[in-house]
């Protein structure tokens, strides 16, 4: 019984290891494209409620889902998701252009 309790505690710890908050631009990109949450949800293969959770940054997508979102918007993953608070997209594009120009 004691070993089982310890096992449950370990599983609880593993399952609840705090992951970082992932910031994203899904809401802005979706609105720019003029699609509803339901339409986006159908395209990326999730429930429309999950799109809501993603947009409010209350849920971190799996790698597969992140790639599907990036393919849907036709943008690289790094422009849609970030572990740091996001700057306006135009600033990111200008930074990328400058980096390409320098190289």
């Amino acid at each position: 019984m004691l070993y089982y309790v310890v096992y449950l505690q370990c599983m609880y710890y593993i399952c609840n290891m705090k992951s970082r908050k992932i910031y994203n631009r899904i809401s802005i990109l979706r609105q720019e494209k003029g699609t509803s949450r339901k339409e986006l949800a159908e395209k990326i293969g999730v429930n429309f409620q999950t799109v809501g959770y993603l947009e409010r940054e209350e849920y971190n997508p799996s790698l597969d889902l992140a790639f599907r979102i990036s393919e849907n918007f036709g943008l690289p993953i790094e422009l849609i998701f970030s572990t740091k608070p996001l700057k306006p997209l135009i600033e990111e594009i200008i930074q990328l252009k400058n980096k390409i120009g320098e190289s």
């Binding site: 429930n47 849920y59 889902l65």
Partner: peptide
């Protein structure tokens, strides 16, 4: 589970 997405 086939009818649930990853978050659900």
């Amino acid at each position: 589970s086939k009818n649930l997405d990853e978050r659900e």
